[in-house]
Design a binder for these strands. Structure first.
Lengths: 202, 202
DNA sequence: CGGTGAATTCAACGTCTGTAGAATTCAGCA
DNA sequence: TGCTGAATTCTACAGACGTTGAATTCACCG
């Protein structure tokens, strides 16, 4: 990463360059650090060791690059499959552990961070986050239990998951940011469980 | 608001202009909509019906303008005073209602939105948010109950409050965004109560 | 061996940004 | 009345941004 333009020589290079993937990787990292609006194509290109025009050659616009970089590499339902086979009374805790696991996995963390950092100031990214929540968390809530008000419960779960990610990983609020996975699971697990199972309307 | 430059005439005007306050008001609104990095001094000046250089004249830099605009107009402990006199078993619910009340109050909502939108991509704003959480939520937790681990509990409360604000007001996640105050209080109140009173370590 | 098309860079455009300095008009005080 | 200083605008700079078009080099296929 971050190799500057090598020779300043124009034209095609020999061998498999893997440039497209390098750009996507750099983009995920930059979007994760600065959000969509804050990240720059010039910066991404520099990280990938490439001319900014090449980014445009591959992806057209910054927005299309973002969409491409955000393609989720793991089908979330597969990640959550293991959750299904646990003690139903500890479902909330299992979900929190899964979420924390995602944030500890370099590539997934970059995508999560990028999506959240961008969604807060950019409308299209917010729409992408809404879609992700609806298609993932809602599917999980609806699939694991058959309670009423699945959408409402899913959005409550999302509010705590998003808040946890921001407080712990983005704003680095102590002591939550440094707490062990076990402690966080012990504290937040029951919250998710509550949104799954208890009464949530007045 | 948003009156364009009137006559294009230079020099001082007659009477109390109230320009400084107009700039601060416009700044709060713009920072709320776009966050610190996305808001522009030119845009703020336009909303205040004033030349951009005047903003610089009053506040020096964009960062100082932000700090000035974020000065909290209401001492939060006063807002939370009423909470103290309620049923201790419904403390979580009372806090959620207070927070939702803040988000429905135009000026306070602008500041909350500005602080959160900025904190996600800007380091100094993140530090301000951390300070706010520490000085407000921690003080409340420590003042209302005398449990162990007050800091950890406070950061857990903050994670749910921040997540609620983002999901409901910034990302507009349905059906949470349209739910009634009563429903949200019924769902999220117990979560806060749990972070206040239950065991939160493994 | 020649040609086509992809990969790559260069140079440039128009626009927007935060900030600065100088000029102008006025309020308030001596 | 005259001076000082605050309020306000104009003009401008220097840098960054996304995007574009043309030029160059190479891989691959016939």
């Amino acid at each position: 990463m971050s190799a500057p333009t090598p020779g300043g020589r124009t034209g095609r290079r020999s061998g498999e360059s893997g440039t497209r993937e390098a750009i996507l990787e750099a983009a995920r990292q930059r979007f994760a650090e600065h959000g969509f609006d804050g990240a720059t194509i010039r910066g991404i290109a520099a990280d990938a060791g490439v001319d900014p025009a090449l980014v445009h050659h591959y992806f057209g616009t910054k927005e299309r690059l973002f969409v491409e970089a955000m393609r989720f590499p793991v089908v979330p339902s597969e990640v959550l499959a293991s959750v299904r086979n646990g003690d139903p009374d500890r479902l909330g805790e299992a979900i929190v552990r899964t979420v924390l696991g995602v944030w500890e996995t370099r590539d997934l963390r970059a995508q999560a961070e990028a999506l959240i950092r961008s969604a807060v100031t950019n409308d299209k990214a917010a729409a992408m986050l809404r879609t992700f929540v609806t298609s993932t968390i809602l599917a999980t809530v609806a699939g694991l239990t058959n309670v009423e008000d699945a959408e409402y419960r899913a959005s409550l779960v999302a509010s705590q998951i998003i808040g946890l990610g921001i407080a712990r990983y983005i704003v680095a609020l102590e002591p939550l940011a440094s707490a062990s996975v076990d402690d966080v699971a012990a504290a937040v697990g029951p919250t998710i469980q509550h949104y799954f199972t208890d009464a949530v309307r007045a």
